[in-house]
Measured scan of single mutants.
Amino acid sequence: MSRVPSPPPPAEMSSGPVAESWCYTQIKVVKFSYMWTINNFSFCREEMGEVIKSSTFSSGANDKLKWCLRVNPKGLDEESKDYLSLYLLLVSCPKSEVRAKFKFSILNAKGEETKAMESQRAYRFVQGKDWGFKKFIRRDFLLDEANGLLPDDKLTLFCEVSVVQDSVNISGQNTMNMVKVPECRLADELGGLWENSRFTDCCLCVAGQEFQAHKAILAARSPVFSAMFEHEMEESKKNRVEINDVEPEVFKEMMCFIYTGKAPNLDKMADDLLAAADKYALERLKVMCEDALCSNLSVENAAEILILADLHSADQLKTQAVDFINYHASDVLETSGWKSMVVSHPHLVAEAYRSLASAQCPFLGPPRKRLKQS
């Protein structure tokens, strides 16, 4: 649940008159999402009104509101027999009622949201009550392989729920002597030191190019640089560091992050930047690179990204790559990247197969709970 924001200063709310007192009302909304995959969808019983329910879910471990999704594969009634019906059901509720908006969509073979439908307002739910769409999607369109909505005969539904909580009022009075504290510009100011090479005390040599930097900042941000300058190493004695395995453009992006906490060109060089972040123990930059690479996972590059993640101990990226390969196994196994990995990294192939087997055979063990970014 997000923290209630402070109200904007009255002088910034309007260029008009300023009242002596004010009130700011925040209506709290808890948002969460749920993904439900139905394997072997074409084998569902086709009687009209037949119901399939998901397991229950909530916004978190401490949330007492429990929900589930309900599907009628062949419609709810005679009117909707040519459609799939989809509903959000409130299973248990400690209150007399709650209000919530919802959005349903289908994830296609690429994991993209399609055929989205959402409620136009927050509906009133009581325990045992459901709301949804009797005519969510035509069955003939859903079952047509050309539309790519049932890869490997799996129907994957994605649901986003927004639950309306209580409202909170914050009130106060205006004073004539309003003090406005300026925003912190530390990142910009440190970035200026790097860009202008002011007050530098060490030189970093990268592929024949020299960059002036500040030992204190490098040591504070990177345990690797800290070790170089702290001990009686040649880098500490000469205040000069030779860097041979990072390209200059990648190095500059890494230094921008060290000084400012930002990497504006990360998406263009996420793979190389991940390697640099791993070498210099820049954990936050490493996770930022993992996130960017996750966003660009595809059938063509899944094997290469899995190898990269394994090489640099990028655990979150590795998990996402394995899950992606499992979901698109029939396509990924035909790529040149996968065939190369079979020869060069057989242990990763074995890991992917083990994960695929456990996903398809849940009876082999208890269900695993899916539970950071600093």
Rank of each mutant, 00 (worst) to 15 (best):
Q320T: 07
M288G: 03
F57C: 02
C294M: 13
Q316L: 01
S85G: 10
L155W: 10
K74I: 10
S119W: 00
P264L: 07
S226C: 13
E334A: 12
V164P: 02
L90V: 12
Y259P: 01
V332Q: 00
P367S: 11
V342Y: 02
P17D: 12
D166Y: 14
F104Y: 15
S374C: 14
F158H: 14
N196Q: 02
F104A: 01
S298N: 04
K154M: 11
M35N: 08
D82W: 06
A109D: 15
S55F: 07
L218V: 11
S85V: 14
V342K: 14
S42G: 03
S119R: 01
H214V: 10
G132W: 00
H214G: 01
W67C: 06
A227D: 06
K369L: 06
V168R: 01
L142N: 12
E47D: 06
K369G: 04
S340Y: 12
Y87P: 00
M35Q: 07
I217Y: 14
C93A: 08
V51A: 05
F32I: 13
P73G: 13
D153E: 12
Y24K: 09
Y34T: 01
S58I: 03
N108V: 12
S162Q: 12
H328N: 04
E210A: 12
E97Y: 15
C256W: 02
S119I: 01
A275S: 04
P182G: 07
F324L: 01
V342W: 08
E183W: 06
D166G: 13
L282S: 05
P7R: 10
K134G: 01
S336W: 12
K154E: 12
N265F: 06
E20W: 09
P151E: 09
T56S: 04
I106R: 14
S162W: 05
F229Y: 13
K74H: 14
A220V: 03
L150K: 06
K180Q: 10
L348S: 03
S15T: 13
D63M: 06
S226N: 11
A100H: 01
A321T: 08
L193G: 07
S58R: 05
A227Q: 01
A109R: 08
R45N: 12
S167R: 10
L142T: 03
C294Q: 08
G261F: 12
S6F: 11
F104R: 00
W338V: 00
G192V: 05
K215E: 12
L155D: 00
L274I: 07
S236R: 05
P8K: 10
A321G: 03
N196M: 13
R139Q: 15
T156D: 11
F363V: 13
D272K: 04
N147Y: 15
H214D: 12
F41V: 00
P8Q: 07
Q316C: 05
I27V: 01
L218G: 00
A227S: 09
I217A: 12
A302L: 01
S167V: 05
S105E: 14
E230F: 06
S96V: 14
I38P: 00
D331A: 07
Y34I: 14
Q120F: 10
L297P: 01
L273K: 01
L88C: 07
A292F: 08
Y353C: 06
K339H: 08
A314V: 06
A329R: 10
V343A: 10
I106Y: 13
S298C: 12
F363R: 15
Q373W: 15
V342C: 13
S162T: 15
D153R: 07
F133Y: 12
L142D: 08
P9A: 14
P10R: 10
L311N: 13
H231F: 15
M233E: 13
S358M: 09
N244H: 03
H214E: 00
K31R: 03
P366L: 13
L308T: 09
K339Q: 07
F41T: 05
E78D: 07
V181K: 09
S80F: 10
A302V: 02
E47K: 03
I27A: 08
V322T: 09
S298G: 09
V342P: 04
E113V: 04
F141T: 07
A350L: 05
P8F: 07
E118Q: 09
L157C: 11
D267N: 07
C202I: 15
C184F: 04
K154R: 08
A11E: 02
R354S: 10
L69I: 07
A270P: 01
A303Q: 00
D140L: 09
G365C: 14
S340I: 06
S298P: 00
S358A: 03
V179L: 02
